[in-house]
Design a protein around this nucleic acid. Structure first.
Lengths: 244, 244
DNA sequence: CAGGGATTTTGACCTATATCAAACGCACGC
DNA sequence: GCGTGCGTTTGATATAGGTCAAAATCCCTG
């Protein structure tokens, strides 16, 4: 049972939260973890549709999602909105707000959810004392940049089918990481929200999903999806037609 | 000459570089600035077309652009590429690499350029000692996330004309910040690269620029642009047709 | 200063996706 | 259990932008 030696501190650090993101894999002593634990002691519950924060609100804390599902969206003055991400358990939300001390997007619960509040100035203070925590925070910030670049690639150079295949595979992989089935899950978001995220209209999302179902790649009924052919979906994300 | 009191340390901190990004506005003592100065002592020159780093290369340092112009691009396996940004003097490049200790994109000089190398582990170490530097680093990372979200909005929900208008206005504003003309400048990148960045084909970029010229918004001859009507361009970025 | 490759412009045509519209179905509240 | 309304599917049509092609222009090298 050597493994549990490294698992135990994870639980300690997050007061029972399952927060892979903030739980450092090593190099933290029990005392360190206790400090981190104190920091993340505030917990909040949100119902479907609740705002975790709104664009323009003063920035105080990051939030680690304990359970549930959120979307983040930026609003253009004219009413257009762009969903910038779907966040699930273990992910950190609010990173965009550090730059200007104010939130730059809305975060809305897509299902009943719980989050741990992480007061940012305290996190900064602690991360000055714990190099390993500091490094982790930097990685989280940088990972978000890499994720965004991936979405830029998706939006800038992929076709609707490719985007949707990439989206389904991304969800699949994230569910798998959390111990859920990678091939059978519920979509928490509407076609409209998927479309906003992927830069397409809800009708196109619906049509494309139907198409995937038609060729046996997936089975979709309302919000529940089954991925029948992961390699088949992968093929869409890969080379475009002219390279096949 | 009170002003020069705050200006002087800036110069010290960057050994003559004009690096707004890393130069902290306050709260650093002379001694602090000297340490920062030591850190950023390595300088390198690149010619047009040179790679600052390549995707996959081990991450060691961030780079502060002293003079010149770079592009960053991510490559899809199949050969598709997406330009993820155009960086100019005073901007920090390489932030994406922190997450995995390896660069995730290529950075290529679009003109002869100079950069200051900032060894990251030393920057982390120093930022543990200087809260003000730590905060600044976090802001830089977060600002990149905000920028990327803006591009997601652009790619996901704007039309070609709107994207290009937004792009020109963004360049305009960044040149202005650096003391150059906001209405007359040289594009360092090709139509192809602009297109990649904005999710459109080079022909569409060219056509749209011609269109802007046709209606008197801009004058463009090859790489030199003059913006004749900033509010006119702004109007494109704003509300879409149905809201006008 | 001339030649040649790269970049840009412009035109004609085509296609992926948007738009508009209608029917359907699931979920929630009464 | 039964409307009622939001979300979804599907169809018909329109269009922004892509594709292909050719000419024009620029810029670098010899």
């Amino acid at each position: 049972m050597q493994k549990s030696v490294s698992l135990t501190p994870l639980r300690v650090a997050c007061s029972g939260c399952n927060l892979r993101e903030l739980c450092l894999p090593r190099k933290l002593t029990e005392a360190d973890l206790e400090q981190l634990d104190d920091l993340i002691s505030l917990k909040h519950a949100y119902q479907r549709g609740d705002y975790l924060y709104r664009s323009g609100a003063k920035f105080q804390s990051l939030y680690a999602i304990r359970t549930g599902f959120f979307k983040t969206q930026v609003l253009h003055e004219d009413g257009r909105e762009q969903v910038t991400g779907f966040q699930m358990a273990g992910e950190i939300i609010g990173l965009d707000a550090i730059s200007s001390d104010a939130h730059t997007c809305d975060a809305i619960a897509l299902e009943d959810s719980e989050v741990c509040e992480i007061p940012f100035s305290q996190l900064e203070e602690l991360s000055r004392k714990l190099p390993s925590l500091q490094r982790h925070l930097h990685r989280i910030l940088s990972r978000e940049i890499v994720r965004d670049q991936g979405i830029m690639l998706l939006l800038g150079s992929m076709r609707a089918e490719e985007r949707l295949a990439a989206f389904l595979l991304n969800l699949s992989q994230r569910f798998a990481t959390r111990g859920y089935s990678p091939t059978s899950f519920h979509l928490r978001m509407t076609r409209q929200e998927i479309g906003s995220y992927l830069g397409m209209k809800l009708e196109t999302v619906s049509r494309t999903l139907s198409h995937f179902q038609g060729i046996g790649l997936i089975n979709i009924r309302n919000k529940s999806v089954e991925l029948h052919n992961l390699p088949g979906l992968q093929a869409y994300v890969g080379p475009p037609p002219q390279f096949l």
